[in-house]
Nucleic acid binder design. Structure first.
Lengths: 340, 340
DNA sequence: AGCTTTTTTGCAAACGCTTGCAAAAAAGCA
DNA sequence: TGCTTTTTTGCAAGCGTTTGCAAAAAAGCT
């Protein structure tokens, strides 16, 4: 009795159960008009023979693959893992498999997305996609279900899940101001992404509302990755009048900045305070533990997956834009400046 | 002129180019006996119509998918990202796409692996699989190409890439001994995995060779994850005669132990030294930076991908077992004990 | 120019499944 | 019991591609 036999086809099951292969197909798809005794016979034959469906054939023949594609920019960022966790929670309940494609080479983003629309996946979740205009239009034209996560669609015709980036950065900056910091360095994210823009905008708004003039030297370019965060922090620290605090656009950049601060022989938070954005698990792992603006990443994943599943099951469903609140998580990386 | 049109099939291209669809297929697969002018005509039609192949149909009809499946236990561990990086480097050169399946729910490991054998992928890379006996036998019987990474096959009939776990742990323990530590706590990995066994074995061998008796209380169970590392360290620290150093079976466990040490009000490395295993990127990010035994993770991925690609292209190729050396990376988390 | 060999191409079958339609069987009703 | 409606099932076509085989065309040789 084989547990699993890869060479068994639906024809073998049909023969074993004494029915047509279309009846086998109907049993497996849960079609209601199948006699119970027939269903039983088929299921027993499936088990006896160790039948595994050929997903390719099923997709080609018009069935649903039962797979959701998740397109992420890379793996070495817990931000992705946190979102994926929320996604997986919803998808497992809805009996979908999650298929992950990484696009650390940007050129693959389009080709992967389009590959997935050809029967490989029933829908697509796009995490911080860079090239939205190129293929999202194609996805929409083909009525292929997709949801954008932490990135907006300039044409406002996509379902999107993101968070209050601007508000979060505003509050984070306010917190640093409330500690007495007046020279607050800011490390941007990748500025072609809307989240990076919004976070910078929140920082600028908080300064303006506090009547503090913006100093361009205190704003340094980053790209959301640690290495650029290190370099941006270096530039901030080498100013003739360096900041007393640094607000990095995400936790990874903050980690890089922390390294630069230490390489400068300075102490966190005694000499310079540091704040991040995201609250990935490592934020509470580094020492001192990072004060950060929290994005509910797993909830973002959850909601995106729900939107997508609903869209697949109700294709006429209107698009949604869900924006989640951020919250400030105060840990040990910030304190009042040495000289007020 | 559409850039990409998802609804174009090979029939449309054939019509547009004035040839049969089998000629189109031959052109796309690089078959040598096609007239150059015909080839040109077909390629222009492909471009003009924005044709994208249906991968499902291609797989079903007997073609290669050009996809390698990567089965990993979870995403929130940079160990995986590092291995994936090496894999991706080789696969992109060999023009294979990488398809990642996560199995944080163990029950999906078997079903994902078997799904992939049905035309979805041309080969499979299995990273620290837990359930090797159940389906690896099936993969082998079906002559489906696969390589195990950082896990052995008890039957010794699989291609495997791993590292000198025992030797690495031996040298790590020796290093702590050379600093003067005589009470060295050890946090195990998940003991059903060979790497966990080997690392414990290396620790024990180093103690034995140094003539130091093994104390069972100094060996605490972990599972390679941070939380268990925290708890194992708590147990070590609450001993009446606690260790002066802790050797954790992997970096994640070491991070958890670092947290426990701090929660105990102790300082690293002044009060207690800590060592990990893997050298994931975070090891040089935590403070103090972690001394650890380095596994060349990206090289493991590279070699595994090479073995797999070669196996796919030469099915008669014999199995290989490649074991890579580890190396000690001394950073700032260890120093001689306070009282020799 | 005719014959042989090589190149080129289309036909047809196949891959493993889903599903519309119609026929057969069963159930319900008067 | 006969008629109507509902349930159950198999037939046949199709999905989009690959590939073996044979026919047609071209090239090579005498």
């Amino acid at each position: 009795m084989p547990e699993i036999n890869m060479s068994v086809t639906i024809l073998d099951v049909a023969r074993e159960a004494g029915v047509s292969y279309s009846t086998v197909s109907r049993v497996l798809s849960g079609y209601e008009f199948v006699k119970d005794s027939t269903r039983q016979r088929v299921l027993e034959a499936v088990e006896r023979l160790g039948y595994v469906v050929n997903q390719q054939a099923r997709s080609l023949a018009g069935g649903k693959s039962g797979v959701i594609g998740l397109l992420v920019p890379g793996l070495d960022n817990s931000y992705i893992a946190e979102i994926a966790r929320g996604i997986d929670e919803v998808l497992s309940k809805a009996s979908y498999d999650l298929l992950l494609y990484t696009t650390h080479r940007t050129s693959t983003e389009t080709s992967y997305a389009l590959k997935m629309t050809k029967g490989l996946a029933d829908g697509l979740l796009l995490v911080v996609p860079l090239l939205t205009t190129a293929y999202v239009e194609t996805l929409r034209e083909q009525n292929f279900p997709y949801v954008l996560i932490d990135q907006v669609d300039p044409s406002n015709r996509s379902s999107v899940v993101d968070s209050l980036n601007r508000q979060g950065a505003y509050e984070g900056t306010q917190y640093l101001l409330s500690l007495g910091h007046r020279r607050i360095g800011f490390i941007t994210g990748l500025m072609k992404l809307r989240s990076a823009e919004d976070r910078l905008s929140g920082y600028l708004a908080a300064l303006r509302d506090a009547g503090i003039p913006v100093e361009q030297d205190l704003i340094q370019r980053g790209d959301f990755w640690r290495k650029e965060g290190y370099e941006a922090a270096e530039r901030l620290l080498s100013l003739s009048n360096p900041p007393t605090a640094i607000f990095a656009s995400n936790d990874l950049s903050a980690f890089g900045a922390m390294e630069a601060i230490r390489a400068y022989g300075l102490q966190i938070p005694q000499d310079i305070s540091i704040m991040g954005f995201d609250d990935i698990p490592q934020a509470s792992l580094v020492y001192p533990r990072l004060t950060t603006v929290r994005q509910p990443l797993d909830e973002m994943g959850r909601i995106a997956a729900q939107l997508l599943v609903e869209q697949i099951e109700n294709p006429d469903r209107p698009i949604h834009h869900v924006t989640l609140p951020t919250s400030l998580v105060v840990r040990e990386s910030c304190q009042p400046p040495r000289h007020p």
